[in-house]
Simulated assay, not measured.
Amino acid sequence: MEKKPPLSKIYEALSAVADQRIDIQTDRAYVLSSDHAKRYTVKFLENGYSSNDNATLWQHYPGYPILAVMMMQGQLKIHEERLSWFRAVNWKQLNTKYKNQYDKAIAEFLEPFSEAVRSQIEDEVECVFHQLESMELTIKGNREPRNPE
């Protein structure tokens, strides 16, 4: 993959997995946004994925819908016992509050946790990021509609 996602997309993907907002079909998957307002379509390519989320479409790196699908498929290894920390986080609301300054949104998310838990959360995100570094995947945007059915 040519461009790696920012760490914030990994946090969002872990929340999508924790909240079970992913529906995997035969040739595609659907991922519901954290505020449940949009449904993203992730299509499976021969050696990669396409998605209609803004990060994938416009920035050309895998957005959180692709990352969440990769986690569900076992392409990205995660510690399932850590998922509870990522449940019920409205990333859309946090990102809007901080005008897409993702570091500030992440800081607010981490605030209520102890130092030990914060360290484990950050370790989880870094671990996923390092797995992405060695992957050779095709990442493309697609123009499927984003509204939930």
Rank of each mutant, 00 (worst) to 15 (best):
K9M: 11
L76E: 00
W85F: 10
E133Q: 11
S8D: 03
Q59M: 07
R39G: 01
D23T: 13
E12T: 13
W85L: 08
R82L: 15
L14F: 03
E80K: 15
I66M: 08
E149A: 06
Q20Y: 03
D27E: 09
Q75I: 07
N95T: 03
K4T: 10
V128Q: 00
R28M: 15
D103G: 00
P6D: 08
T56S: 02
I139K: 07
E108M: 12
A88G: 07
I106Q: 06
Q25F: 10
L45Q: 01
K99N: 07
V17S: 08
L76G: 07
T56V: 10
Y30N: 09
F129P: 00
E122M: 06
E136I: 11
T26N: 10
A55I: 11
Q20L: 09
R39H: 04
L57F: 13
D19V: 07
S15G: 14
V17E: 10
N47L: 04
L45I: 13
P148S: 02
Y49N: 02
P5N: 05
V117F: 05
F129Y: 08
Y102I: 03
G48Q: 05
K3D: 06
T26V: 07
W91E: 04
K92N: 14
K140A: 13
E12Q: 13
K77R: 10
L94W: 01
Q73L: 10
E126T: 09
H130V: 00
M70C: 02
C127G: 04
R118D: 08
A55Y: 13
E136T: 14
Y61H: 13
M71P: 01
N54K: 14
Y98A: 01
Q59T: 13
S50L: 11
I106C: 02
L132G: 09
Y11G: 12
Q59A: 07
P65Q: 04
L7D: 12
G74R: 09
I139L: 06
R82S: 09
F44S: 02
S34H: 06
Y98L: 13
L83I: 11
E136V: 11
L83C: 06
K92C: 05
N52L: 14
V117D: 03
I78F: 11
P5V: 02
A16N: 14
V31N: 10
T41L: 12
I121Q: 00
P65V: 00
L76Y: 11
H36P: 04
Q59H: 03
E81H: 07
E81F: 12
S33K: 13
V89Y: 05
G74Q: 05
N54C: 06
I10P: 07
D35T: 03
E2Q: 15
K43C: 06
K4A: 12
T26I: 11
A18R: 15
S134W: 02
E133K: 12
P112S: 11
A107Q: 11
Y30R: 14
W85G: 01
T41P: 06
K43T: 15
G48Y: 04
K9L: 03
Y49H: 00
